[in-house]
Design a protein around this nucleic acid. Structure first.
Lengths: 407, 407
DNA sequence: AGACTTTTTCCAAGCCTCGGAAAAAATGGT
DNA sequence: ACCATTTTTTCCGAGGCTTGGAAAAAGTCT
């Protein structure tokens, strides 16, 4: 009946180890003293914990040359040991799977992209494809082969809230596809499946300029999606992958959306919607509008084509209204924007801010920072990797360090 | 730089004491053994902590008559000691201030309501008024007078996120009114000022049927407001009091709202909006529509008056679209509804669910539970009291128990 | 080479919780 | 009535982690 569980010395140990690992993620290289200052632990405790993590193989002492010329005994530099683990961030998108392998220190080791027509394929095919991609990525490495320790699959579309697979994806005709369990058996590592957009805030998990900050990531491309970082945690819905920003209703009874409803934000701001509006065709195009096509359309708008301009303006307006609604509900948030929409930000920003101004109380948030990250793939890989490493840190803090206890 | 702070034995003690208090809040009366089972603590620890809290005066051993006829040594019944503290939940509404005093066990001791024209008054007047109300409430008690230990002020309108006062309220013409500091000096107790709607989920904090559940409270009355309970915490915005559900835009360029924007949910679903729509008058009525007037309007709709019916239907539709937007963003949530709208739920429910169906992906959430709580004041008092008691528990867990250490 | 400084390591002490044993307080047979 | 049983509390030693201070280590500065 109680909601608050007890705590004990074990929890203290786990928590403090995690604090040390967290600090290392942020600064990459420190000393025991610096760890003590950053975490609030005594130097004795900091030293003891560092020592245990060192013996456990999670950390390594490194030689640093840029030792500032200060008096006194120089601190021994500590860093995460890349060899402690290996993680993969995989991505399923329309007509393409891709992935990146990184070491425990977060350094990318290999990256790969593979165009495949996966639309009509079933779960077994997808799982095999991902497993093959992962093993090819591993094979590419010079170092001796070793198994992965954690795998994250980012998917366009809706995923189960228990991270086990795909409810529905625009990349796949089949529905309800189990991924985590079969793939984890093939790869010998735990697998988590998440929506790409809601995962994206993880990319900023250890970045100093985003620490403690609430913000949203906004993907505007073929679809429109959002990720939220609230109270220092990446928001995950209970029911599904959540924050379906693209399907927040913009205009009751408005334009037809892919989802079957009328008036969704996506029905104005998705690539297909902008295309539909600019070309004057009423139907949803059967195939994905390519990035190049969207670039041409944006160039036409920049050159003054009135239909194209109007289409981008309507898109920005819908996004702005959507953001205004989010801001009214949650709070004004800084926005990290990516996707093809980020490349057309010059055409969208004015109407986005205008939409916020019209829809939020007192126009609050219409001047919110808008940070553009053009490389969506890199963002998703960063996010998946961070998520995987955070999961490993938690696991290692719990039990990993003393396993190899043998000074 | 680090985000994760260290933990130590102190934290363990605080956390576990809080766990014991939390359990007592839920079940009202237990035994040391039951505490151990509920929290996961060993019986030794449970006994030790209970003993400390007992000596600290937070708990008391009580004689119970309903002892079930079981073998073995009967457990000594423990309960929160009402005399350990006294809290007040005060409320500022249009033309009225009210309040309730409760003891540490959460039992209401006195309640009071006072109609006052506060519209044009300044901060000093409001603070004095609240202080007077609090002392009158205290005077009403038979027991010897004693100071309050914690005061919560619930306000219609927007409050500062640091809980210090009122940014803006429909009850007051003045803006930016400091309440917490001056009132805490007058009353000798810490004061927190919060928005009434966002506070409401606190009323369910210790209720078994809501434990661990995410849900929303929805107030539909002169204004329209929402409270959110997400991940076991009552949502509080960083920027202001947050979840301005009534001002989430419903229809771009739509009906004029009190806030100056066009198309807010409130501009369709607020009392004044329903009235405006039913009577065919275009303006926002200058004065608050009374509850009786709304009842008459509802009765007219029930009797078949088409304009009234249409007005309620439009209101329900706007609420439904708003909920659909929230559900699309967060997740479908059970709704606890209160305010004059709760009394007209028979006129609203169909169109609310219709609105959700039209605006949420796959209509998800259109069948969400809709729980009606007609007594809004009781809900606000319950919420304020729970908030105050939770704050005290935290404080007592940290330091209170051993202060009176003298068996 | 010796004085200083700063970082690490080492060790006894202090707090918690835990597990088991002993004590306490009833019930149920005989 | 009395003793065995059962169940709840209390008591006590042990174990784990952090702490603070002292000692050791490893460099700079003069």
């Amino acid at each position: 009946m109680s909601r608050l569980a007890k705590t004990d010395a074990d929890m203290v140990r786990v928590h403090n180890r995690l604090a040390v690992l967290d600090h290392l993620r942020r600064v990459a290289v420190t000393t025991r003293k610096a760890v003590s200052e950053a975490t609030g632990l005594s130097v004795s405790a900091s030293s003891a914990i560092s020592g245990a993590l060192l013996r456990g193989g999670l950390l390594e002492e490194i030689e640093e040359d840029d030792r500032s010329i200060r008096r006194g005994r120089p601190g021994k530099s500590l860093a995460l040991c890349g060899r402690a683990a290996r993680v993969a961030a995989l991505k399923i998108a329309v007509g393409e799977v891709s992935g990146r392998i990184s070491d425990y220190a977060g350094r990318p080791l290999a990256e790969m992209r593979r165009g495949v027509d996966i639309s009509g394929k079933d779960g077994g095919f997808i799982v095999d494809l991902l497993a093959e991609l992962a093993s090819d990525l591993t094979a590419e490495l010079a170092e001796e082969p070793r198994e992965l320790d954690k795998v994250v699959v980012a998917v366009q579309g809706k995923t189960f809230s228990d991270l086990s697979g795909i409810v529905w994806s625009p990349a796949l005709k089949h529905r309800h596809i189990e991924i985590a369990e079969p793939l984890s058996i093939l790869l010998g590592a735990p697998v988590s499946v998440l929506n790409d957009c809601s995962l994206m805030p993880e990319a900023f998990r250890w970045r100093a300029d985003f620490t403690g900050l609430d913000f949203a990531t906004l993907f505007v491309g073929f679809g429109v999606g959002m990720g939220l970082r609230l109270n220092g945690a990446t928001f995950q819905g209970k029911h599904s992958s959540a924050v379906e920003f693209g399907h927040i209703n913009h205009m009751p009874g408005g334009a037809l959306c892919r989802c079957g409803n009328h008036g969704c934000v996506e029905a104005y701001a998705g690539d297909y919607a902008i295309w539909r509006s600019a070309t004057g065709k009423g139907d949803i195009p059967a195939h994905r509008i390519g990035d190049e096509a969207m670039q041409r359309l944006a160039d036409a708008a920049r050159a003054g084509d009135p239909a194209a301009r109007a289409a981008f303006e309507a898109a920005g307006n819908a996004i702005g209204y959507g953001l205004g609604r989010v801001f009214t509900m949650i709070d004004p948030l800084p926005i990290v924007m990516t996707g093809s929409g980020a490349k057309a930000i010059d055409l969208l920003e004015t109407s986005i801010r205008g939409g916020i101004r019209e829809s939020a109380v007192d126009g609050l948030g219409s001047d919110t920072p808008l940070i553009v990250e053009e490389d969506t793939d890199a963002l998703v890989f960063d996010a998946g990797t961070a998520y995987a490493l955070a999961a490993l840190d938690q696991e290692f803090a719990r039990s990993g360090a003393e396993a190899t206890e043998a000074a």
